[in-house]
Every structure is written in structure tokens, then in C-alpha cells.
Design a protein around this nucleic acid. Sequence first.
RNA 1: GGAGGUGUGGCAGAGUGGUUGAAUGCACCGGUCUUGAAAACCGGCAGGGGUUCACGCCCCUCGUGAGUUCGAAUCUCACCGCCUCCGCCA
Length: 428
Amino acid sequence: MLDIQLLRSQLETVTEALAARGMRFDAAAFQAMEGERKSLQTRTQELQARRNALSKQIGMLKGKGEDASAVMSEVAGLGDELKANEQALSALLERINEFVARLPNLPHESVPHGADETANVEVLRWGSPRTIEAPVRDHVDIGAALGGLDFETAVKLAGSRFAVLRGGIARLHRALAQFMLDVHTREHGYTEVYVPYLVNPASMFGTGQLPKFEEDLFAVPFGEGGRFFLIPTSEVPVTNFVRGELLAPDALPMKFVGHTPCFRSEAGSYGRDTRGMIRQHQFDKVELVRIEHPERSWDALEELVGHAEAILRKLELPYRKMVLCTGDMGFSAAKTYDLEVWLPAQNTYREISSCSNCGDFQGRRMQARVRTAAGRNEFVHTLNGSGLAVGRTLVAVLENYQQADGSVRVPAALVPWMGGIELIEPVR
RNA sequence: GGAGGUGUGGCAGAGUGGUUGAAUGCACCGGUCUUGAAAACCGGCAGGGGUUCACGCCCCUCGUGAGUUCGAAUCUCACCGCCUCCGCCA
């Protein structure tokens, strides 16, 4: 959520910044609502002040045993107008709030300008694609040959965009997640967390999925009129740890790593990535989340990306590091690095991690603050990044480590997590 | 599922219709004292918003939302969380 004070005082600057993100911001509509709010609020508060003063008088008079009926009838006359004003004001405030809640975060000054992903900037390329003896097969064929990747059964069980894994590939999938968790906890200082996969609407608001992106989520009705949402990323439950909290300075930074399934409706992505497990309704992800002091968050972002990169390096998977341009960033992000892994079958790099600093955007939505040394309360800065998307890492390993005989080598760093297995062979 | 209790500032904890946004303690900040620290003492200290050049004035907030009342932390209702007991299930 943007600071409404900023909207009031720097309307032009904000409008420009949002335009860079491809967001058409109706400044006139906002100003109209604000003008109305101002007069309505002033009038309402005048009436409230009058009522409070008169009521206080009644109290004093009655305390002294005097007659208060004249004052009482005067204050009674205020009732209708006051009530009407209060209702109009709260309705308007709700409208303004809803309006502001749908505005995305402002890009950091270091973010390149551009309309879409073609304007993203490559800042680093690591590793070189190994030579694979022709023909190069994609993970779907590799998985089918191994008998470990089964989309037909998944369709029977659930539908398209789901997968069933078996044998060595299922094991590989588990090993990858465990490996990532162990590296981040042992080597990068993150605290492992286990969290709910269903969350309430307030949590979804806190990280920015609601109110604007409800169609991307799976909802589960519960109780009378209540509902849960399936998390689209563990960023949601983990970041919301601090919702509504006023934290002591020494409580920060908080560094969490969680492994959860993620659920996305993928509404609007109908023709895209229909083959294989690149884009699924359910996938596992190991997520890094950091709650930071405002002045530390930009350093923290660089660290965080490095932690995600470390996984790719240990697995010896070639990747490149991109800075997303203004037009390609997510709703809550102030700056985002994407890590893209080399997929030989697609002969290109594909996103496997997205690491963002959200600044105070989520902190303000969550009302999560930290008491600074100066005694002021500031909204915390929040960061999150995939470290990594497990399903896509599985795809990357299958494709990059495929061998001519149809088997798949296990990356050396992963062998201990595979119980010593170095080669994935067909399921019997 | 049934019965009862409870939800107040960073924390603990008073407050049951009227000059209470809220006693007190702890924590925190400033000062006195001290070579320094501690202790003691003095002072400050909830958040958000409106208005003002400023001093200030005003409004809202005691889990959330409705309601009663001239006036609600205090009364009523619903919801949410927590605690205890009973039942049921693992």
C-alpha cells in the first residue's frame, strides 16, 4: 500500500512513477474523492466536537445535581446530521482505501524503465550449457522414459496442470527441497518455518494478493460466510508473521525459509506452457523471507539473491540474473531480480526464482512496524525470494543432466540428499 | 458438540455509564547524583487522522463489527482469538 500522504503531497510524482509501471492512475478521480473527504471530515469532526462538549456539560450539571434538560435537548438536535455525516464519511473513506489498495508499489530508482520483459536487463550470466548428445529431450520425454513423470494419472485425479511423480524422480523432487532448506538454514542463517497452506483474507491483503488478484487464487469456503485461500507462495503466511506487530529494534532482521506447496489458478494463462510441469496449479517452492530495518533492506536484497544463486551454483545449473524493468515487476515489489535457469530443450533461460524488496509496501498493508533508535515507529521492509522453485529445479536437473541412454545423473552436490544415489534409472 | 471464563497502551495490570485516552508497575528516553556504572530521585513517554507558518485546537481508536444512550473501555447482540471443564475422536 502506498502512503496516502505521499499521494496527497506528491500526486504528480506518483502518477509518473505508476505510469512507468504501465499503470494508468486516475489522479483527477483521486483528487475529487480527497476534496470531498476533506470537507466531509471537517464537518463531521465539528459536529462530534460539539456533541462531546455538550455531553461533558451534562455530566457536570448532573454531577452537581442541576437541571440539564436544556443542554440535552440541544445535543439531541445534532443526532441526525451527525449520523448522516459519519456514515457518508466512513463510506467515502472505504472507497478511497479500496482505491489506494489497488495501486502497485513504486519502482526503486535503480529499476530500468520498460514496458515488458523485453526491457529486463541481464546483469550476470553464470555457467555454460553443457553439450548434450543429440537428440536433446525435454523433461516430459525424459520423465516418461523413466516412468517417473505421469501427467495422465494427474489428469484423472485432478485435471490438467498437475503432475504425479514416481520413484527416482519423486525422490529427486524431495531431495531438492531438503537440500535447499539445509543450505539456507546451515549456510545462510535462515530459520526454518512450517506454516499453514490456507490463510485468511487479511493475510492475503497484507502481502498484496487481495483485493486486486483474487482471480489468481483458489478459495475454500469455511464457516458462516468465511473463507480461506490456498497460498500462491509461502511469502504470504511467512511475511504475515509480523502483521499488526510493533517490533523492538533488536527483533530485526528476521530471516525465514519455508518449504510449501503453492497453488495458483493460472487464470489467463490458457495457452502458455501447457506441456510439462513448468506451469502447474500446484508446485513446491522453498521461499526466503526477510523482515528488515528500512535502512538495511537494499543490502538485504543483494544478499537474498546471492542465497538463491548459491543453490543454482551448487547444482551446477547455468543461469542468468535479470533485473526486471518497471513494466514487468509484480504488484508489491519495489525492485525484483529474476534468476533464469538454462533449459536445453527450450534452448533458452526460464525463470526459476524471483527475489524482491517490497520496501514498506507490505509493512504498511500489514501495519507491521519497528521502533527505531530515534524512538520513531516505522513500517518494516519486507523481502522475499524463491530459493528455489522446486518443480522447475526438477525440470532443470532432468534436462541438464540427461544422458544418451535415457538415465539422468544426480548433481554431485545433491547425492548425499539422494541417499548416495548417483543415477536415476527407469522405474520398474 | 455442551457449559463457563476472558480479550485494555511495548509488556504486566487497574478501571463496570459522565470533566477517563485510561491508575499503577516494568521497559524505554532525558536529567540530577557518581571517576564511571548501578541504585535513588526528578521529568517525559499509546497509535492514527484533520486543521494551523507555528504554539495549539479538534476527531477517532480499550479484540472486530453492529446497537442502546445526550454521553460507552464500562450495557446489549453477533463474530474472532485465548483459557478451563464435560463429551467425542485420534
